[in-house]
Simulated scan of single mutants.
Amino acid sequence: MTRVFGEAPSAAEMEALARAALARLPAQFRAHLDDVVIAVEDFAEDALLDEMGIESPFDLTGVYEGLPVGMRSIDHSGTLPDRIRLFRLPILLEWCERGDETLEHLVAHVLIHEIGHHFGLSDDDMHALEEMAG
């Protein structure tokens, strides 16, 4: 993605990066993600930050909201779709602070971490999934 210095990617551009990372995941994972909504917002709302015990909105880059795949049953029909929210400004700040990776890589990292929560994966499993999508 070519950009003019100082111009931050929009939410739509960051969502496109996330969807591209999603498309690179192995088919066995993608098959279970069709109904997961991906949204990019500037920041998490105060209520979510309070619920998670996070003081600064810059400390939360993403969140998975839903029921992990292994915990689903027929009793959960009629619920809202699972959702992964990526928070644009905290991601951009982390990208600037790191300075050693592409924005595409960081967005993929955050997305895959949240997908890991959807599947109930351990941190090691999430790292392996990230390698597969790399």
Rank of each mutant, 00 (worst) to 15 (best):
E101D: 09
A11E: 14
M126Q: 12
G53E: 12
E130H: 12
A20H: 08
S73E: 00
H127M: 02
E45F: 00
F29T: 05
S73Q: 02
M126I: 15
E15T: 00
I74P: 00
F58D: 14
G116D: 04
H105G: 13
S10W: 09
P90N: 07
H105F: 15
E55P: 02
L80S: 15
D125N: 10
A12I: 06
E94W: 06
M126P: 00
V37R: 14
D35I: 01
H76V: 05
A108Q: 04
M71V: 01
V69I: 13
I115F: 01
M1L: 09
G116K: 01
V63Q: 11
V107I: 12
G70A: 10
E94M: 07
A21R: 07
I84K: 00
V107P: 09
L86T: 10
A128G: 00
G6K: 12
A39Q: 12
V110L: 07
G53D: 14
H32E: 12
H127R: 14
F29H: 11
M132P: 00
G120F: 00
E65H: 08
E97R: 13
L93W: 07
D34W: 06
H118Q: 12
I91T: 11
D34S: 14
G53A: 12
L103I: 12
V63Y: 08
S73C: 09
V37T: 13
M71Q: 13
A27D: 13
G99H: 10
G116H: 01
L60R: 06
G70N: 01
A44C: 11
D50L: 07
A16M: 04
L80N: 09
T79D: 11
E65K: 06
R85D: 04
E7A: 08
L86E: 05
V107M: 04
M71G: 11
F87D: 08
G120I: 01
H127E: 15
A20G: 10
G66R: 04
R83V: 08
G62A: 05
H105N: 13
A11D: 08
H32L: 08
G6P: 05
H109M: 08
E7Y: 01
M52G: 03
Q28L: 05
E13G: 03
T2C: 04
G134A: 10
E51Y: 07
P90L: 02
S122E: 00
H113Q: 10
A8E: 15
V107A: 07
L67E: 07
A44S: 09
G99N: 06
F43Q: 08
A20W: 10
D46G: 03
I91G: 01
D42Q: 10
Q28S: 11
A21V: 04
P9C: 06
A31Q: 14
T61E: 11
